[in-house]
Each structure stands twice: as C-alpha cells, then as structure tokens.
Amino acid sequence: MAGNKRPVALFRNLNAKIAALPMITTVLVVFIGCTLWTVVYSFTSSRALPMLNFVGFDQYTRLFGASRWAISIKNIAIYGCLSLVFSLVVGFVLAVLMDQKIRFENTFRTIFLYPFALSFIVTGLVWQWILNPLGIQKVVRDLGFESFNLSLLTDRNLVIYAILIAGLWQGTGLIMALMLAGLRNIDEEIWKAARVDGIPTWKTYVFIVIPMMRPVFATALVLIATGIVKLYDLVVAMTNGGPGISSEVPAKYVYDFMFGWANLGQGLAASTVMLATVLIILVPWMMLGGRPNKGKANG
C-alpha cells in the first residue's frame, strides 16, 4: 500500500484516538461551547429567557457599579488568600506532627479527615449552630463569663471570617492527608544524610523536604483554589449572604441573578468576569508550572 512507507500522522495510534473522541467532543461542546455561549449572552439584555438583543457592555457597567458585586469580590479575596495560606500551613504542620511516629496515628488521621466527608451544607449548618448566640457564647456565659461576646455571624465585618473558619475545618483534613502521603514518600536515606551532616530538623523540612514535595503542593493548591472559586453552598447554609449582603460571594451573585431574579444577562456577565479572573491567575501559573516537569524528564 502507498501509505505503508509514510503512515499518515492522523492514523497513528488510531485506537487511542477513537477512545479519546467522546472526551474530546465533550470538551469542545460542553466546556468550550458553553463558555462561548456564556460570553456571547453576557453582552445581551436577556432576562428570564436567553435573547440575542445586544447591549454592548451595559451588563458589565452595571456589574462593576453594583456595591453587592464589590462586596462579593472583597469577600472572596479575603476568603481566598487566607484559606490558601492557612490550608497549606495548617495542613503541612498537622502532617509533620502526624509523621513523628506518634501513637494512635490512625485515630487522629480519621478525626482530622472526618469533616471532609460532610457536605458544605452540613458544615455550614453545624457552624451556624455553634456560632449562634445560643451556641458557644451561651456555654461560656453559663460558665460564669457574663460579658463574653461572640458575634461572628451577626457582625458584618467579621462574618466572612466565620465562613473561613468553617471552610478550613472542613477542608484542612484532606490537605493534611495529601501532605502526609507526600512526607511518607520522602526517602528515609535523605533524613539519615541530613542527620549525618548535622542539619537541624526544621531546616531539613524547609530546605530539603518541602522542595521535594513540590508535586504534592501543586495538587493541594489546585484543590484549594477550585474550592475558593466554587464557594457558594457554605455561604448559603451559614448566612445566606447576611447580615444584609455582608457575606455575599461571586458565585451567589451569579446564581441569584440568573435563577432568582430573572436577569440572565447580568448573571452571565458576572460569571464571565469570574472566568476571566481565573484565567488571569491560571495561565501564567500553568506556563511557569510546565517547566520543571520538562526539566525532570531531561535530567
């Protein structure tokens, strides 16, 4: 056959390519197609039903003029930064403590990982009860501290931290488990070598172990970051955005306008801005993140 000498690139690994077709179609239609649809309709004045009457940047002007959106952005920034830092730090420290060959390690691991088995809705409700004036506050007051005041949920400046606490309680266990697996993967010989060289333990962790755990940190980072962007159900269960609009988040803005208040255009504009923000952070990170893997393959 003519093609025998120079097989067409398209037909190389044909089976694998056929097997990948459904996924490729899904990506093209569902992810890229729907994303394009979202962006296009964010420039229309669609209300309950999608309609193609373009209004330019009107939806975006309104979006950036809305104080509710500004509050949502501020909240997600606070929640995002703090949840990223605390999840990684607390998760890593817990994993290190757990790695000291302690007794009952299994028990502790189970306890720390358990909250992750609960949905955000349950987490939110539990913490709402705990932080409710009849929860911790009442217990401490009954112990005799009459003036004790814990108004996290009703104080509009503090409410986002209450959500942060609940979020960390739920998610840190998983990060800890990941980190622990990473620590266990470090070769025992490296520890021995470090000890022979007389390097203090903390230095070994910071300068040797952590750089070696880079892939684990990358995984943890992705998990935490998607959790931040998705933040919705925890807020709905805990405060429903209140007091007033003090604990609103972008995902809730999108949902409320699209489904609750029948303004598709406004909701889609907000979700387009969310997508753009994620891309702005993600693209440079992926470009940077690509390099070490290549380096590894070469070395």
Partner: peptide
C-alpha cells in the same frame, strides 16, 4: 417591579439594614 429590580432593591435594603 420586575424580579430583577426586586433583587437589586433587596440587596440595597440588606446593606442598609445591616450597616
């Protein structure tokens, strides 16, 4: 009021009432 306006008004009232 259309639901869209209702929603904006509700957000504004919430902000005013809590602050």
């Amino acid at each position: 009021r259309a639901p869209d306006t209702q929603g904006q008004v509700e957000s504004l009232m919430g902000e005013f009432f809590s602050n």
